[in-house]
Structures are given as structure tokens and as C-alpha cells.
Design a protein around this nucleic acid. Structure first.
Lengths: 348, 348
DNA sequence: TGTCTTTTAGAAACCGATTGAAGCCTCGAA
DNA sequence: TTCGAGGCTTCAATCGGTTTCTAAAAGACA
């Protein structure tokens, strides 16, 4: 591999001079020597070692992104946002699929620290787990000492810049919309209990019902895990219910779609027999039949702004305690409608 | 940041000894000193610099993956396969969204080379472009000199280990299946012309027709670009045709789904009025209505085997000229059926 | 001509590891 | 007593850059 030494030798200048020309230093170099260095670099096909540079300057221009699963459109869109912005700023992105397993996240974080990444972005909601949090705070302390940035795109229980959507509000608007349509028996498919996102969204559901003075029915709160299959299972549970709801709100689109497909297979007409609604507005949502009513979250933007915040945090233009809130929007499609008979779900 | 020097000092041993126990060298170290080093590393919260290590050993344990777009389920699945296997082998994965723009790919490759990645994986088909190829071969020559591996998951026109599916065969089986159903007027939505994958698939279509002695109708070959929107447009073109086909084969699922949705909007019943079929079997394919008949490609496996090959290539267990062929499988769902009236599409 | 700036060049330290070669004990054999 | 062999340790070179600090050359001015 050709090094800066070879370039310097060929150009007949010192290593220092070669470095200054090649790295765009502000230190003055005569035009004549500058040209010689550039010429030498070109003929030798010189490629400066980013590793060596990182060792001395202290920053790698690499960031890590911890996601649940790249095949989940939710995370895929976030990644794209992160990477697009990272590229424009000269950063490279390492993607880490943790499947939301605490031990996996911690292992990744240690490895990323070994590589001295300039920062880490946590996509998706935070894990609620004592041991995890303790370990997390310890490793993040090391990051902080290194002045590596920590950004999370969702509520996390450790210190980090947060780029958020108002999850409680998101669900409340969804429930408001369904109630506005005339529904009062609304099933809810929740996310996994140990995720902040799931907890917030469930709270939103409960608060919205309370605000409308609708009594909570524990039977209508179904446990899910944000996967398509969970939605399918929920459909079967709903089908087996004595008093069926007139609408189902899933806490993410993947489950909503699973539920929609499951209900259709069981003979329900959507939205005539039952309305189905999701959250997120992933790309698939518009392709299913009927197209899914949902709340659009700024997934791509979340990634982009997250990456932007990471850089600002590094340059001292933001504080670790800063929080950004991004807007969401209700998207009405065809999977929701007025209930066939008013209150049909409540009165047996 | 605490370095190995600090650990050595605290353990009261030389740096060399500290390095030997910390890096798992085979060089003998007495149990007593070994224990002291381990203890010191733990109390200091020592995190070995992977950068420094990479500088001296020459390998970074980082690989780059060049994809079109992370939000395309096709690439997302491949990435997941790559990353899952990479992790088990101690590699980190840098994801590069090139949108298949030649200049973007080249830029990424240069950057990845600056970081001295151990190898690069090209996901998806190769670009057909003279200038691109020339530049590509030049930069890949540098990779080769560094003994960095180059693997492509699809046919590329530069030297690399290839992990492939038989694209021609895939399409032929799809066409065979449609013809077996009784179709003889089959529209085809192609991919972008400058992609090997698109070219191969189109050839497969033409060869299959020829084999069945069906005359090619240029009107039925529609230009697409592998996006959902291209499928929508194709639906409108088909609708405007005087002699309508009885089946549409899209060269990927995204376009098939676009076409399916588009045709439904135009009032066609699928599959009664017209059969629609895709290629890839991305996850969405089973959620659309009707579920899409397609050919399942081993996307995850492609990524996994690709990463595996990269490592084998590095260790001399494979040659750059090696090619692996992975199996595909026809998946019949509900979007295809016998044509309503035999030969309706051919006789006006 | 001598002195004082201003430019520009280069020598050398440093980032944090790995590793080949050399050195030091200790023990057993001659 | 001397020598050789093994087992551990350590020294120091190395990877490929950046940057501080010193110094030389050139120009300005009296």
C-alpha cells in the first residue's frame, strides 16, 4: 500500500509538507511544492489511511446505528435517513441489528467503542430493564468521556439527545378519530411491554378512552410484539370474543396489517364489519387492501435529524439534554369507516 | 482514554506482556502476570483500540455493503443476512445506499478503501456502463493489492466472487407456469436497462416465449425501473392496450404490486380478469390482496452466503473466480389463475 | 550591511496497539 | 564450574498519518 511517505519522497518534499497539502491544512505551502505533491499522489494512486488519520485526530467519522431489525420498514426508513445525511457530512454508518435484545445491544456498544465511533444513534423505543440500564449507563459514560455523541430516536431511559414524536398524542389522535367516526368499542393491540414506545402508546390509548368517558375493557387490550404475526393472532382472538369491537387500533402498522389480513381470512369485511387502523405509515400501508388508515410518523426525518443532532452535539451546538419533537399526521385511507350499527359492540 | 500503556503500568508489566494477554496471543505468559493484567484491564475499564490494532495487523474486521436502497425490502433482507453472519465472525458492516448511481458507488468504494475495509459486497445486479466499469476495475485493483475481498450477489461485470440465482431460469419458470395455466398473451414489465439483472430476466422472458413458440409482441414489453410507481404506470399502459394480455409478469415484486393495485383501481378483478405475477417474494407479497404469486429468491441466504464467501476468500478458501448458485422456488398464491377465455388475449 | 519580520520547510513527537528479536533466569547435564 | 536449553520478559521497530516547534530563507527597512 502506498503511504504518504512514498508521496513525499516522489514529490521530493518532507512528509509534513505532503500531509499539509493532502489533508487541506491551513498551514501555507508554496504553489510549486503543492503541485508536486498533488501530482505525486495522483501518479501513485494514493489513498490516505482513514485509520491512521483517526488515530491522531481522535475522530473516525464513523457512527453506529442500533436498530431492531433492518427488514422492518420502520427501521429501514430511519436508516436511510441517517445514512443520507451522514454521507453529505462525510460520515460512514455501521448498522447493528439488535433484535432489541439487551445483551446484543450492549455487545454492539462495546464493539463500537473499540472502534472509537464518533457517536451512536439508537433507533426505536428504549428498553425498560434495570440490569440493562445499569450496564448501559456505564458504557455510555465511557462514550461521553471520549466525547462521542449519543442520540436516541425515541424515549430512552439513559442520557442522550432525543429526537421524538409525541407517542401519547399520536395514539390519542388515532383514538379520537375512531371515536369521532362513532366507534366506542375499540380494541387495542399493544407492543412488547418492556419498550418505552409500547408503554407510551398504551397510555395514550387509555387516556383517550378516559377523556371520552369510555370505560376500559381489559378484554380489548391485546398483547402484541410489533410483528405481522402478532396481528394475525390478534385477529383470531378478536374473532373469538363474545362482544366484538367495532374497531381495532394496532400500535404499529405491521400488526395492523396482520390483523387486517387475518380478519379478512376469517370472513370479516373491512371496514364494513370492523375498522382497522395502524400507526407509523410504513410504505406497505398504502398497498394493502383496503389501504390502511394510520398515523404517519416522520421516520426518514427522524433518522436525518438524528444524524444532524449527533454532529451538532459533537460540535457543541447542542446539549445532551436537548429534545426535539417532530410532527406526525393522521392519514385516513379506506380501512376505517363508521360502525355498521351504532354501539353494536357495546350492547350485545 | 485509557490505553494499553496504562494497563501495563498498573499491572507492573511491559506493554508487550499486556498486549499478549489482552489480545489472546499464543506467546507464553505466566499465570501470575496474566492475572495481574486482566485485573488491571478490568479496573481501568480498558477498551482496546480497534483502530490501532487494525493499523498494525492490517485488517479492520469491517466490510462494506453497497446496496441500492435500504428501504427496498429486497436489499433490506440481504443486509440482514450479511450482518447476522458478519456478527458471528466478529465483523462490522458499513451500509452504503448508492441508489445504483455509478458515481455514488465509486465514491463509496474510494471511501471504503480509505478505511481499509477487509472487503466489499455488492448487492443486487451489476451496472452496465463502460466508464463505470473502467473506473471500477481500477479501484478494485487497489482492493486486490490490499487483499481486500470483493463479492457480488448478482452478476457484475468486474472480477469478484459471485453468489447468484439463475435469473434466466427464474423467469422462464415463471413464464412456464403462466403458460401452463393457459396464458399465451403475457405482458412483461422489465427492469432498468442498464442493470444485468434486468437484462437477464428480460432474456429469460424472451427465451421462454420462444421455447413455447409464442410470438413476441413488442407492445407487451413494458419498461419499468423496479419501483412501485413503475408498476402503477404499467397498469395504465396495459389498460390502454387494444389487445389486452391475460397475464402480467413483472420482473420484481414491487412493480407487480404496483401493477396489481393499479389494475384493481381501474376496475380489473385479479386474477379473474388478468393474472399478475412477480419475482423476488419480498415479505409484502403475501399481504397484498390477492396475495401475490411470485418466485421466491433466497435473499437472506444471499447475504449470509455472500458474507461467508468474503471471509473464505480472505482466508484463501475460495478463489475470486468462484461462483455459487442458490436455489429459487415458485410460490403460487392467489394473484394468478387460468385466463377467463382461452386465447382471449391473442384473438381480438 | 545589519536587523527584524514574514513565509515556508522539515524534524520529530505522538496516537495505541502488535510482534520479532534479544535478554535474563533457572535448571539440568556434562 | 560451565554450558545449553527453555520459559518468560522486555525492548524497540512498525503501521500511516497530524501537528508542534524550530529553523532557514527571503524580503523590508534603516
Amino acid at each position: 500500500m502506498v503511504s504518504i511517505i512514498d508521496v513525499a519522497r516522489l514529490a521530493n518534499v518532507s512528509i509534513a509538507t505532503a500531509s499539509r497539502v493532502l489533508s487541506g491544512s491551513s498551514h501555507p505551502v508554496s504553489d510549486e511544492r503543492r503541485a508536486r505533491v498533488l501530482e505525486a499522489a495522483r501518479t501513485l494512486n494514493y489513498s490516505p489511511s482513514a485509520l491512521a488519520k483517526a488515530m491522531v485526530t481522535g475522530d473516525t467519522n464513523i457512527v453506529g446505528v442500533i436498530i431492531g431489525d433492518a427488514t422492518d420498514p420502520y427501521f429501514a426508513t430511519i436508516i436511510r435517513g441517517v445514512e443520507d445525511f451522514a454521507r453529505t457530512q462525510g460520515y460512514l454508518v455501521i448498522v447493528c441489528n439488535s433484535d432489541r435484545v439487551p445483551a446484543m445491544e450492549l455487545r454492539y456498544l462495546n464493539t463500537l467503542n473499540d472502534y472509537r465511533v464518533d457517536g451512536v444513534i439508537f433507533a426505536g423505543g428504549g428498553l425498560i430493564d434495570e440490569d440493562y440500564l445499569r450496564a448501559m449507563e456505564q458504557i455510555l459514560e465511557i462514550f461521553r468521556e471520549r466525547k462521542a455523541a449519543c442520540v436516541s430516536l425515541g424515549k430512552h431511559l439513559f442520557p442522550s439527545v432525543s429526537v421524538l414524536v409525541d407517542n401519547v398524542q399520536v395514539i390519542q389522535e388515532a383514538v379520537d378519530y375512531l371515536i369521532g367516526l362513532g366507534h366506542s368499542s375499540i380494541a387495542y393491540i399493544s407492543g412488547p411491554g418492556l419498550l418505552t414506545t409500547a408503554e407510551l402508546r398504551l397510555n395514550g390509548y387509555k387516556m383517550a378512552l378516559k377523556r371520552h368517558a369510555i370505560e376500559q375493557n381489559p378484554e380489548l387490550i391485546l398483547k402484541g410484539d410489533f410483528t405481522y404475526e402478532a396481528g394475525l393472532r390478534a385477529a383470531r382472538v378478536i374473532d373469538a370474543l363474545a362482544k366484538k369491537p367495532t374497531a381495532v387500533l394496532a400500535s404499529n402498522d405491521l400488526m395492523a396489517i396482520g390483523c387486517l389480513v387475518g380478519l379478512k381470512e376469517l370472513g370479516y369485511k373491512i371496514p364494513e364489519d370492523i375498522s382497522v387502523m395502524g400507526i407509523d405509515d410504513i410504505a406497505i400501508a398504502q398497498f394493502v387492501d383496503p389501504p390502511l388508515t394510520t398515523v404517519s410518523l416522520p421516520l426518514y426525518e427522524l433518522g436525518k435529524v438524528g444524524m444532524e443532532s449527533l454532529i451538532k452535539l459533537r460540535y457543541g451546538e447542542m446539549k445532551i439534554s436537548d429534545t426535539l419533537l417532530l410532527p406526525h399526521q393522521l392519514v385516513v385511507r379506506k380501512s376505517t369507516a363508521q360502525p355498521r350499527t351504532k354501539n353494536q359492540g357495546i350492547e350485545p
